[in-house]
Nucleic acid binder design. Structure first.
Lengths: 181, 181
DNA sequence: CTGTTCATGTAAGAAGTTACATGATTTG
DNA sequence: CAAATCATGTAACTTCTTACATGAACAG
């Protein structure tokens, strides 16, 4: 049993997902992803451009003549086959990988042996990072709220979840800092 | 400017971190990591065994004659130089990578176009996953609480933070499910 | 004596990042 | 016209996972 989806990576589905609502260039998608999916699924040009071509080769996306100023841009639109692949992915039930890699948390975990000052410094770095993350997420909230009309509420809901998550994280860090003082 | 630490990956520091409190075999470390650091820093045998050898080669760890039953096991202990490298890493201030990859959240993000039933199914999968994660974390809590005496409280603190995080996540998912009903 | 767990390792490959190269277009 | 931004792409590299191979020790 093999389908077209077998050759698609999660990155491909990010691309299809964005193309589903509107045609985009690789550059567009990168820019949009950087203040939306980036927080739980990063992508880079090194994947985007080759993958878009691959999707076109598989007939899931098609290059469209687009332009900006006088210059040609490689704008892609999703095809019917592409929509089908996206739906199939969304409907498919499977475990769904979850992964987190947090270098500072790793340090915190091992920080006891290095004394309270080192621990304090790590906690501070983490707190600053979390504060920055929350500020960044909140800065895109108005935009996400505005576009909610076009496609459903999911994108905003995911964003709000991210904010809650990082706020919980931040509060925990603050507690630990207090305990140490 | 180059130090021994340049050649060390984050995985190396996980190994040094565990060796810092006690000598261990690669197998030991994998087992321990699987119910502690795994939740924010996974490691696999494919990294552990080669990396341990590399640490030994750099003089940061040393093979110790250990045995279990009649059989020889490759038990490593940390060296003074290894402790120094670990401390240097803990003290070093640098951004510290943070990364999250959540396939189901990615689906949820794009789920609007597929209709409410698909969205409901994704939310359910996510809820079950979070409930399982929380149960697993809570199951190691007594153990983490017990060993807190040996090395400081950081390991327990990190665990408790993880529980809070996943509980926040779970609550958010439950809210979304209610909104959809 | 048979299946399971303990234990160590390697090879191949997947996935993703970084750095680099290139050049057009716009802005000041 | 110079600097910044737009835009596309590739090659090399790093990191990590998966699958496989091997065999000892132990439990029933």
């Amino acid at each position: 049993m093999s389908s077209a989806n077998d050759q698609l990576t999660n990155t491909s589905f990010v691309l299809l997902g964005f193309l589903d609502s509107h045609p985009h260039s690789g550059y567009d998608i990168k820019r949009i992803a950087d203040h939306s999916t980036r927080f739980f699924w990063q992508i880079s040009y090194g994947q985007i451009y080759p993958d878009l071509k691959r999707l076109a080769g598989l007939g899931l996306a098609a290059e469209q003549a687009g332009s900006r100023g006088g210059r040609t841009r490689n704008v892609y639109r999703i095809t019917a086959k592409g929509r089908q692949a996206l739906r199939a992915w969304l409907q498919q039930t499977h475990p769904g990988s979850f992964e987190m890699r947090d270098e500072l948390l790793l340090k915190l975990f091992f920080s006891d042996s290095a004394g309270p000052n080192v621990k304090r410094a790590i906690l501070k770095q983490m707190r600053l990072r979390e504060e920055a993350a929350i500020a960044e997420l909140k800065s895109v909230e108005p935009h996400a709220r505005g576009q909610g009309v076009g496609h459903g509420p999911a994108r905003l809901e995911v964003l709000m979840g991210g904010i809650k998550l990082h706020e919980t994280y931040l509060n925990h860090l603050k507690d630990l800092e207090k305990n140490l003082a």
